[in-house]
Write a protein that binds this DNA or RNA. Structure first.
Lengths: 146, 146
DNA sequence: GCTCATAGTTAGGAAGCCTAACATTCTGAG
DNA sequence: CTCAGAATGTTAGGCTTCCTAACTATGAGC
């Protein structure tokens, strides 16, 4: 909490990082806006693709409150993409899992979006792609320390 | 538009990029949610900090429609942070510029947010920071090719 | 068994974004 | 010079997403 102790170089990087990420929000929005599945729904589906998970975990992973997660999950359920099952180990909890249709929709949407982003990345040279590949885990690491 | 031609390695990078960016949205949101100025307002203020600009340019830079930009700008105006002046070269257009109070608020908010992000980046080692610094311009470049 | 914490849902409201319709100003073709 | 169409914003109305507060139902500890 003492700004004087911060390395100016780190501060400059922080500024650049913040700005880049702010713009990347719009990049991400446009990358993930395709068809009828929203970015948030994509996130939820990809979480559930690994294994069924609780509503509260969906909320935590999305950085939203539980009621908001419930709302989104209900929409996914009405669209037939996920099902809500009571957790056998805790009857208070609800497990969100992909339906067959949900898995198909998720895989399809992923494929199309990946192809579009790959087309963007294709314009970079090998060095740039290598740098980007090296930086992504670091950004994820920062994300986890949140 | 022919997915078969895409390098699998580039596709994998695209997937990772997309996922990282999607999570970074929430990171950015938490980094930029501080006090009373929202992330979008910060973006608008930082644009106007360089030079007065039109409503349509604000909208374009934020990736939103003109009416939505108008709405945000009116809020900033009501908060006393920007003023709306008719463009002397085109009376249809409106120039958004920072007020003194707006500039002070922006500088203050920037300082605090940069300090908080710098504290996160401080936990990385020098190599990680170097990689991150190298990657940021590349992400910006991708952003511009949008 | 009572009490308190935990998991989700429901209800109601705030904020942000959108499209459609409109007023005003500019531009250029005749 | 005039008038039709383009460009710039604003207003109006609606949709979506998120929030907090209040509630139900289940689990856990004394």
């Amino acid at each position: 909490m003492s700004p004087e102790q911060l390395d100016p170089q780190v501060l400059a990087l922080a500024q650049s990082f913040r700005t880049t990420l702010r713009h990347a929000v719009y990049l991400s929005r446009s990358m993930d806006s395709d068809g009828d599945i929203t970015a948030m729904q994509m996130s939820t589906l990809s979480m559930a693709a690994d294994a069924p998970l609780r509503v509260s975990r969906v909320a935590a992973n999305l950085g939203i409150r539980v009621p908001s997660a419930t709302e989104q999950i209900i929409k996914l359920e009405q669209a037939g993409l996920v099902s809500r099952q009571p957790d056998p180990t805790d009857s208070r909890a609800v497990l969100v899992e992909l339906t067959e249709q949900g898995r198909a929709a998720w895989e399809d949407a992923s494929r199309r979006r990946n192809a579009r982003v790959a087309a963007l990345l294709d314009r970079l040279d090998d060095g740039e792609r290598a740098t980007l590949a090296a930086a992504l885990p670091i950004i994820q690491k920062i994300n986890h320390t949140l």
